[in-house]
Computed example of a mutant assay.
Amino acid sequence: MPKIVDHYKRKIQIAEATWKVIVEEGIEQATVRKIAETTGLSVGAVRHYFASQSELLRFSMELVSDRVKQRVKTRKFPKGPVSLEFIADGVCEVLPIDDERKIEMEVWLAFSAKVLVDNTLHELSNKMYNDMHQGFKKVIETLQLLQFAKDELDLNMEVNRLHAIVDGMAMHHVLNSKQLTQEKMIQTLNYHLQSLCK
């Protein structure tokens, strides 16, 4: 009886192997041949799912995005009042505060660099940026809705600032985790959110 292959699971296996290669060896090494070697599949089997490196990278990045969204979506709201700590924890879903999120951020940064030289990835990069920006907008709007936020806050400016702070901390941590530790990132985020509140 022929073995039944779950094609979506196989694509995820290939994407996760792509992440591994990117983190350990750099994005330029994430070739179809190298990914095939890492997964134990043939080059032909990998090409069956992804015709090009760009297609493989695109799916790998979409998987990162989907996993972040899934974590955010499955967060359990507290039974009592929503606290500032709960809001900060939501923002931490996109900060590299554990091994899983650090891998995601390293892959994201490598992907972002690749976008500069691969026009086929621009559309996905823009979509992911906009999704992230909308997420930060919801954070600031939630602070306002709960009447935590100072009355004079400029919504658009604060969304831009929160996005820049999170991106900056993530990049600095990936590049120099001894200087900007996970604890310092969380402290900085909490400090910033508290500065927006009454």
Rank of each mutant, 00 (worst) to 15 (best):
D66S: 13
A110E: 11
V5S: 03
N190I: 14
K137P: 00
Q134P: 01
F77V: 07
V23L: 09
K184T: 13
A45T: 12
R58S: 09
K3P: 00
V5G: 03
M1D: 08
F77R: 06
E100P: 01
L189T: 02
S125A: 15
Q134N: 10
F50E: 00
A15S: 10
K114H: 08
G26W: 12
C92L: 03
Q29F: 07
G80T: 10
V32I: 15
S60L: 09
K198E: 04
T18S: 08
Q29L: 11
L121Y: 08
L196F: 01
S60E: 09
E37C: 06
T74D: 02
S177D: 12
T142R: 13
D89W: 10
A164P: 00
E104L: 05
L116Y: 01
Q187N: 08
S195N: 02
I35F: 13
L175T: 11
M61N: 13
H192T: 09
D6R: 08
M185Q: 09
R161W: 06
M171V: 11
L95D: 05
H48K: 04
H48L: 05
D151G: 08
M169F: 15
H48C: 03
S195C: 00
V46K: 06
S177Y: 05
V46M: 09
A164M: 14
E141V: 01
D89Y: 07
G135L: 15
T120N: 05
K79L: 14
R67E: 12
Q144P: 00
A51V: 04
K102A: 03
E85L: 07
E123S: 11
M105K: 11
G80I: 04
E158Q: 10
D89E: 09
K73Q: 10
H163L: 11
A164C: 12
V32Q: 05
Q182D: 02
L196K: 07
E62W: 10
C92N: 03
L193M: 14
L189N: 03
D99R: 02
Q187A: 10
F148N: 12
N130Q: 15
H192E: 14
G90L: 15
C92T: 03
M169T: 12
K127G: 06
R33Q: 14
A15R: 04
Q194P: 02
V64G: 11
Q194L: 13
N176I: 09
Y129H: 15
T74F: 02
L193D: 12
M1K: 07
V5W: 00
K137G: 00
P96S: 05
A51R: 02
I22H: 02
L84W: 05
M132Q: 12
V174T: 12
L153W: 02
K11W: 01
V166P: 10
M132C: 08
S125R: 12
W108L: 14
E93R: 04
S177F: 03
I140Q: 07
R161I: 14
V166E: 11
I87C: 13
E62G: 15
V23K: 10
L56Y: 04
F77L: 05
L196E: 07
I97W: 01
F77I: 05
E28Q: 10
V82M: 11
D99E: 06
S177I: 04
V115I: 15
Y129F: 15
V115T: 06
K69N: 08
H7I: 01
M1L: 11
C197S: 06
